[in-house]
Design a binder for these strands. Structure first.
Length: 414
RNA sequence: GCCGUGGUGGUGUAGUUUGGCAGCAUGUGGGACUGUGGAUCCCUUGGCUCGGGUUCAAAUCCCGACCACGGCCCCA
């Protein structure tokens, strides 16, 4: 028995039904915000990802040489690919250019709950609008997308990297030192950072103060004012102060993030609880074009897990018709009905095994069909069908011409 | 990569401590039932993750691998 490779999953019919529903919620919401879908290749030149994220990530990506000797890697995320696509073929589009994507990505990591070697990302890139309003739209969309799925127990943290950057720069810390400090405070090891870098209590006060108190500590810097603007605009999107927290300890792992950043966590997920991250970044260096972008990525699998933990279900509704022919002589009549309903976009299936009526109805029940349509000699002679409502169990004989009207009136979409 | 827990029909489980006929439920297929589903009953199907070791005998004990889970590291 050959099994699935480590860190991969199969998705059965029920899971796919749920996943598609959630995917469509995200997709619809994002289109509603004026974004257009794109898709990039599953694999790229390895260099693309190393340039973007640094050589250290090579350990964690699926990379190999193809038969032509090229260094190839399965995408570990989409941002680099989408920006490559932009630089290669979308540069001349009018701005802002609003793009979204959905698909699988791959990382060679130790699997655990919420972490797989093949996982799905849903994300956006908002290219060429360097304003607080663009940042606000980016954050608002991410938040709305998650809320739209019904997810409730989430926390969102927003920050502006430049605030701490300015502070530490003033104090004379080098770039490497600053990065080490960020890493420590991200891991909530602030005290350790204070000791190691001989930082004053002012720094601790700065990163732990409520947002409103920050001007008292460092003055109304331009970064502070920018972030304040973003929060004001967020409320125009209906994302209010109680929906998030301004937290200067929120730092993103990579140095191409430059301005406003944010993270959303689903508290009940455990160790791998971050379901969304994003912000403002500039990948111009790699592609030789100075373009600012804002985007986010939702960890789709974690979102599905979080919804499950909150017991938010996506019940499938009964729809469609199941035709039960009784006896060989009615088969042409039954297929005539089958074809008519299918052509009218009503999900319709027919018994293929010639089973007893009882078994056939049991199948229709388990298959969540809304109606069963029984046709036998009696119906054939009268030009009728017996229409059975699988929810109520009631049935009636109706003229064949009336069938379409009877089953097409309510939700029987396929 | 590190530490820990676990793995029994498709699914959920009993059995593991103290080695001795792998049991139950559910599901699948068929039947009771060729003009009526969700009920009931009968039959059938199907399993000890893999490999080695100890033993008269291993699901059970030992070692290793694989996989999953909890956490660390990392987290684009």
């Amino acid at each position: 028995m050959i099994e699935r490779p480590r860190g991969t999953r199969d998705f059965g019919p029920e899971q796919m039904e749920v996943r598609r529903k959630i995917e469509n919620i995200l997709r619809d919401k994002t289109k509603n915000f004026g974004y257009q879908e794109v898709l990039t290749p599953t694999f790229e030149h390895t260099e693309l990802f190393l340039e973007k994220s640094g050589p250290s990530i090579e350990e964690e990506i699926y990379s190999f040489k193809d038969k032509g000797g090229r260094d190839i890697a399965l995408r570990p995320e989409f941002t680099a690919s989408v920006m490559r696509m932009y630089a290669e073929s979308l540069k001349a589009e009018s701005k802002p250019l609003k793009l979204f994507y959905f698909g699988p990505a791959f990382r060679y990591e130790r699997p655990q709950s919420g972490r797989y070697r093949e996982f799905w990302h849903f994300g956006t890139e908002l290219i060429g609008a360097d304003t607080a309003r663009a940042d606000a739209e980016n954050i608002a969309l991410a938040y709305r997308c998650l809320k739209e799925t019904g997810l409730d127990d989430i926390t969102m943290r927003i920050s502006h990297l430049q605030i701490l950057e300015d502070y530490l720069d003033d104090k004379g810390f080098s770039r490497d030192e600053r990065e080490e400090i960020y890493h420590m405070i991200d891991k909530e090891e602030t005290e350790k950072a204070l000791d190691k870098f001989d930082l004053s209590e002012d720094f601790k006060e700065l990163i732990e103060s409520p947002f409103e108190d920050i001007p008292d500590l460092i003055g109304e810097t331009s970064s502070y004012k920018y972030l304040k603007d973003v929060t004001d605009i967020l409320s125009l999107y209906g994302v209010e102060k109680e929906d998030y927290e301004i937290d200067l300890k929120t730092v993103r792992g990579l140095d191409y993030y430059t301005g406003v950043v944010f993270e959303i966590e689903a508290e009940r997920l455990g160790a791998e609880k971050q379901i969304c991250g994003g912000g403002d970044y500039n990948l111009g260096d790699i592609f030789g074009t100075d373009i600012s972008s804002k985007g986010f990525a939702i960890g789709f699998d974690r979102l599905v897990l979080a919804l499950d933990k909150e017991e938010i279900s996506f019940e499938k509704s009964r729809n469609g018709c199941y035709i039960v022919p009784i006896g060989e002589e009615v088969i042409p009549y039954a297929y005539d009905i089958l074809n008519e309903l299918r052509e009218d976009d009503i999900k319709t299936d027919i018994d293929l095994k010639g089973r007893s009526i009882g078994k056939a109805l049991g199948y229709a029940d388990k298959g969540d069909f809304r109606y069963s349509i029984l046709v036998g000699e009696d119906e054939l002679e009268e030009g009728e069908v017996t229409l059975k409502d699988m929810t109520s169990g009631e049935q009636e004989s109706i003229k064949r011409e009336e069938l379409l009207g009877a089953v097409g009136t309510d939700e029987t979409e396929s």
